[in-house]
Write a protein that binds this DNA or RNA. Structure first.
Length: 718
DNA sequence: ATTCAACGCTTTTTT
DNA sequence: AGCGTTGAAT
């Protein structure tokens, strides 16, 4: 099977042929990392080094997992289905379902998403008698998630609390954890945390799973958080046949816990690690790559890397100033038309923006011109209220302890059961040590529940029993869902509303039945399995590649995609880089985001900014993004008839790049890291901190730098 | 229990 | 401008 390495470049081949032990693949944008992963797995199997089922390949999104699986199927054949491919969360669930008792859960635990979390948190805030205006549920949610991503629990949070507010948050977090456990529910972070705890603390389980996998591969390693890092580390032991693939320049999720140090420190964690850099790019023109390289070179503390291509330079990058967001939208439309004139399809064109709110003006214009488009990142199918209402019935049928879903199903449709009644039921259940839903059947024993309500509750119990019996009897999931839709009165309630919205909801619910029918048709799917797949796969809308439409999305959503023509809009100070990204670290993340956006383009890239823009109902004047000034001047051009962003670009670029580098923060003796010159020591501070003299270790030279503007970070104190 | 109007916030998002 | 949450009214 030597053809598994034919057609690979030397670096790719090196990674594919790597014998064993830890391997770090620094894969620049468009450098064929998926190719490396798939060919490596195929080669290990083909050479009989490992059976397919002893390979574990972990990704971040279902989309990436699916792509990996499909490409493996093409390379390995039917055996590919035995390779464990999945997201971090899916991998943990597969393990936890088999080991649930070891972490104190029943096998049929449910998975709570962000919405469920907030419901629980609101109740916890009430328990602690904390005004949700003082501490919003979202704040606790963020704190809890952040803690869990670092493998900390509520007790750690309390121990670390630096204020009364922190202590309150920690107490709420504690209650939240208790409630989840009582409901037999795990949130997304719990899947990772409990997975890690199981493997780290339970020697038997550890031995089982470490023995299970001979090779572990991780995609997008730069996006891993600490919990994921620990999971990978423990699973890779003892053989440590671990391949991690990633690009530190594409780390754009630090705000949700991703820790770029995981990839930067890989060689420290695994001193015997082999490192391969994939720098040859097979996607973009030379000009686009030159721009991308130049922009990201302004960042400090990265693995040095330079994308190159043996293809031509291609067109210059178009730089256009627009009067306002409407003119910008017209520019987008004309770029689309130009792309069509070049022979591209609508699906080959994408429009990126920093914030979702920017799509509106563009959509308006595209509608007006009759250009088909799709917006990625709207409300997702499984997150729609009506879908969740219906799923709540199924969730309670599977797991009667799920009090959150019980409250939800009793409230939809409206039939005289409100929060008060639900609270009484749950209290009754807790008092008698019953799962929450079992209180329904004993409604007559619960004080304060009237006759009409009791009848309603008994109806609900009967429906739940019926659903359970159907499931046990092997009825298709679609039939069970259809029964829930009718039996609950949800459909009748919506039909009675007679509005456009209610009709849409009914259509969505019918769509859910169709989705379930597909599941049921493929194989025997139990309700619990279906619910789990739904919980871990939020993107049922399925981005079909062949859609004849222009794609509109945030740059975050664009990661991993590529298009012939890309327009990045809104290159303005306070928007991109975003005003909230005001530290050196977050500013660098904005720059990486820009880098990700640039490198999505295969052939043509246009960048636009508006001179005035209405945001939150207020129109104000805007300054071109400093990032525009970081592009090599000879890589850009402004098309005839268009205007170039002018005036302040250069001066903006020279503004202090975040407070972290403010001159006052540096004193003689401080250690600094510079993007170009590397590590150095501050010799002297001049002009009240505006200028610093730094001696650099690399060449021993002394340089005088603008403290506020130099791409430089303090890494140590005098 | 339900409904409707006023208030307030507003980056990025997966699982 | 637009949405989600809260609080008062029915």
């Amino acid at each position: 099977m030597s053809d598994l390495t034919s057609g690979l470049n030397p670096a790719q081949r090196e990674a594919v042929l790597h014998e064993g032990g830890p391997l770090l693949v620094l894969a620049g944008a468009g450098s064929g990392k998926t190719r490396v992963l798939t060919h490596r797995a195929a080669r290990l199997i083909a050479e009989g080094r490992t059976p397919p089922w002893r390979i574990l390949a972990i990704t971040f999104t279902n989309k990436a997992a699916t792509e990996l699986r499909e490409r493996l199927r093409g390379l390995v054949g039917p055996g590919a289905s035995e390779i464990w491919t999945g997201t971090f969360h899916a991998t943990c669930v597969r393990i936890l379902r088999r080991e649930a008792e070891s972490v104190g859960y029943a096998r049929d635990f449910v998975i709570y998403d962000a919405d469920d979390q907030l419901r629980v948190l609101r109740a916890c805030l009430a328990d602690e008698e904390i005004d949700p205006k003082r501490i919003p549920p979202r704040a606790v949610q963020a704190a809890v998630s952040d803690a869990k991503s670092r493998m900390l629990d509520a007790d750690d949070l309390l121990a670390q609390a630096a204020s009364f507010r922190d202590e309150d948050i920690a107490r709420v977090a504690k209650r939240y954890g208790d409630r989840l456990r009582a409901n037999q529910a795990m949130d997304f972070d719990d899947l990772l945390v409990l997975g890690v705890r199981l493997l780290e603390d339970d020697p038997d389980a550890r031995a089982r799973w470490q023995g299970r996998f001979a090779h572990v591969m991780v995609d997008e390693y730069q996006d891993t958080n600490h919990a994921q890092y620990r999971l990978v580390r423990v699973l890779a032991e003892p053989e440590r046949n671990l391949v991690v693939v990633g690009d530190d320049d594409q780390g754009i999720y630090s705000w949700r816990g991703a820790d770029v140090r995981n990839i930067l420190d890989f060689e420290r964690d695994y001193p015997d690690a082999h490192v391969v850099a994939l720098e040859q790019n097979y996607r973009s023109t030379g000009t686009i790559l030159r721009a991308a390289n130049a922009v990201v070179a302004n960042n400090v503390g990265r693995h040095p890397k330079r994308l190159w291509t043996d293809r031509g330079d291609g067109d210059p990058i178009a730089l256009v100033a627009c009067r306002d967001e409407h003119e910008e939208a017209r520019l987008v439309a004309s770029e689309v038309e130009a792309a069509l004139a070049r022979g591209e399809r609508l699906a080959d064109v994408a429009v990126f923006y920093r914030t979702n709110a920017q799509s509106r003006a563009i959509e308006d214009q595209l509608v007006r011109r009759g250009v088909a488009y799709r917006v990625i990142g709207g409300p997702r199918f499984y997150e729609r209220a009506e879908i969740r209402d219906l799923l709540a019935y199924l969730r309670v049928a599977v797991n009667p302890a799920d009090a959150v879903s019980l409250a939800r199903m009793l409230g939809a449709p409206k039939r005289g059961i409100g929060p008060t009644t639900v609270r009484r039921l749950v209290a009754f259940a807790v008092q008698h040590g019953l799962p929450a839903a079992d209180a329904l059947a004993q409604a007559e024993a619960v004080t304060g529940i009237g006759a009409a309500q009791r009848a309603t509750l008994l109806d609900a119990t009967r429906l739940l029993d019926e659903l359970r019996q159907m499931d046990a009897a092997g009825a298709g999931v679609d039939r069970i869902i259809a029964r829930a839709l009718e039996g609950s009165g949800l459909r009748d309630g919506l039909d009675a509303e007679q509005t456009i919205e209610s009709q849409g909801k009914v259509e969505n619910l019918d769509e859910l039945i169709s989705v379930a029918a597909e599941h049921a048709g493929e194989r025997e799917v139990r309700l619990a399995t279906f619910l789990e797949e739904v919980a871990l796969q939020a993107d049922a809308d399925g981005v079909d590649e062949e859609a004849g439409a222009v794609t509109l999305m945030t740059i975050h959503n664009a990661k991993g995609l590529e298009f012939d023509t890309v327009v990045i809009t809104g290159l303005e100070e306070t928007l991109f880089p975003h005003i909230r990204s005001d530290t050196l670290e977050t500013l660098e993340e904005e720059r990486r985001l820009f880098y990700v956006g640039i490198t999505r383009a295969r052939r043509r890239l246009s960048l636009s900014h508006a001179e005035s823009r209405a945001l939150h109902g207020v129109r104000d004047y805007r300054i071109p993004s400093r990032f525009l000034a970081e592009l090599p001047p000879d890589a850009t051009a402004t098309p005839a008839g268009a205007r170039a962003p002018v005036g302040t670009v250069t001066s903006v670029a020279r503004r202090p790049a975040g407070r972290a580098v403010a001159g006052a923060a540096l004193t003689a003796g401080d250690a600094v890291l510079h993007a170009t010159f590397g590590e150095g020591v501050v010799i002297d501070v001049e002009r009240g901190g505006e200028l610093v003299r730094v001696r650099f270790a690399n060449d021993g030279a002394e340089r005088r730098l603008m403290a506020g503007a130099a791409p430089m970070r303090k890494v140590g104190s005098a």
